[in-house]
Every structure is written in C-alpha cells, then in structure tokens.
Design a protein around this nucleic acid. Structure first.
Length: 234
DNA sequence: TAGGCCATCTGGTCCT
DNA sequence: AGGACCAGATGGCCTA
C-alpha cells in the first residue's frame, strides 16, 4: 500500500490500498459522492419521471461518471503512492538514523534535509577539487588518486548554519545521532559543512594493499545506486 | 485537546 | 479525449 507500510512510524497507516480503488476509505467517500450525485439529480429525475429513455440515458451517464471517477481516483492514488515511494527512497539515502525506534522523517523534513545534504556534498566536492589541485598541481587534477587527504575527524566538523536551521525545524528529538544506528552513516561527516580546508596532518594516509577508510574509496551504497539507476531509467 | 502529518477525493488546468 | 499534475478540502491518527 502506501509508503507507511512497514515504515518505522508510530502512525497507523491509512486503510490498505487495494488495486482497483476499493478500500474502505474510498468506498465511504464514494458512497457520499454517489449520494451527492443522487441528490443533485433528484430534482431532474422528478421532472423527467415520464421520460423513460431520458432516464436510461442519465443512468448510463451516471455509471460512466462513477466509473470514470473511480478510475481517476485510482490513478491519483497510484501517483501519490509512487511519489511516496520516491520519498522513501530519498529517506533511505539521507544521513539520518533508520531504525524501528526512530520516527520517520516527515516529507517536508526529508526535502529540507536533502537540500542541505546536496549543498554540503557540493561544497565538499569543491573543497576536494581545490585540495587535489593544490597538492598535485593543476595539471594533475584529473589524474590524481581517488583517495585525497580530505577527511577530518568527525569531531572537528563544524555544523553548517543550514544544518542548524534544519535541526531547529525538525527538533533535536527528531535527529538522533546517526552513529547510534548501524545502518546510518556518521552524522557529523554528512550533516556538517567543513568551513575550512582540513589540515593535511589530519588526513588519511593510504597504504598499498590496505583498505582505505575514506569515503571516496567506499563503494556506492546499494540504495544510492538503485536510486540513480531508477532516475536514469525514466 | 490542539496542532502536525498524512491519505484520499475532487475539480481545474495543461499536455500529448 | 485521456492522462498527468496540482492545489484545496476533508477526515483520521498521533503526539505534546
């Protein structure tokens, strides 16, 4: 059904969506709709009581409109479910704790956090490019190693004002430390901007044959990869 | 109980 | 004409 199904939200889901638009809610609403239609057509029906052909035609049209209305409602539900699925996909890749004890991000919070996250990543990328060009020279900036000495210890990361504003919007209770969840990336590294280029002494060093801890060397999370493939497929 | 969030319905508009 | 998209209205659930 909708995106709430299987979510971590304590909110009870809306009535189960059944393909074809015949759930409880829509039935109830549709009954009200039909009654309204009957009420609106009642006066005309009284006037035309003698006209059997006219009545049959009206009945047919009413069935068409009811059927059409159900189809439109069903499409709209599906559209909204698709939208919610995309929203869930966005939540999955957000630097936010996922878990049964964590309340799901609201839609508005998800969008705001996503915006800040993208801005932070863009900023990090710019810094990284600058750093690489500084270290290896401009002639090598496209051929340098993937692993740059750019990752400061999380504790040194300052929180960007945008992130602070997001915290104020969402409330601190809604933003538990990501590190508390095994599924979540470190919060500070993702949520905080680095206002200054970190010193080289705090950088990672790369040894031959040793796994690199820096984020650049980690494979793209499956959730992100699937999301990008989804966007490419459309 | 008020407020927030959400799902659904509905009518209008735009596009193909 | 049919479908997609959008925004307003409505009502339910949950939390502080």
């Amino acid at each position: 059904m909708d995106s709430d199904a299987g979510s971590t939200s304590s909110r009870a889901s809306s009535p189960e969506f059944v393909e074809g638009g015949s759930n409880f809610f829509s039935n109830k609403m549709f009954e009200a709709y039909c009654k309204e239609q009957e009420r609106q057509h009642g006066a005309l029906q009284l006037q035309d009581k003698a006209g059997g052909k006219m009545k049959a035609k009206r009945d047919s049209m009413e069935e068409d409109t009811q059927d059409g209305r159900l189809k439109v409602n069903s499409r709209e539900r599906k559209r909204m479910h698709d939208l919610n699925q995309a929203m869930d996909g966005l939540r999955e890749v957000m630097p936010y704790a996922h878990g049964p004890s964590v309340r799901k991000l609201s839609k508005i919070s998800t969008l705001l956090l996503a915006r800040n996250y993208i801005m932070m990543l863009s900023s990090s990328l710019d810094e990284m490019k600058k750093l690489v060009s500084d270290v290896y020279g401009t002639g090598h900036q496209n051929h340098g190693p993937r692993c740059g000495p750019i990752r400061p210890p999380p504790a040194q990361v300052a929180m960007h004002p945008l992130t602070q504003s997001l915290h104020s919007i969402m409330g601190t209770a809604a933003m538990p430390p990501c590190s508390s969840s095994p599924h979540s990336p470190p919060s500070s590294g993702y949520l905080g901007f680095r206002p200054t280029v970190p010193s080289l002494s705090s950088a990672y060093r790369h040894f031959p044959g040793m796994p690199c801890p820096c984020s650049l060397c980690q494979p793209l999370p499956a959730s992100i990869a699937s999301l990008s493939s989804l966007s490419m497929s459309k």
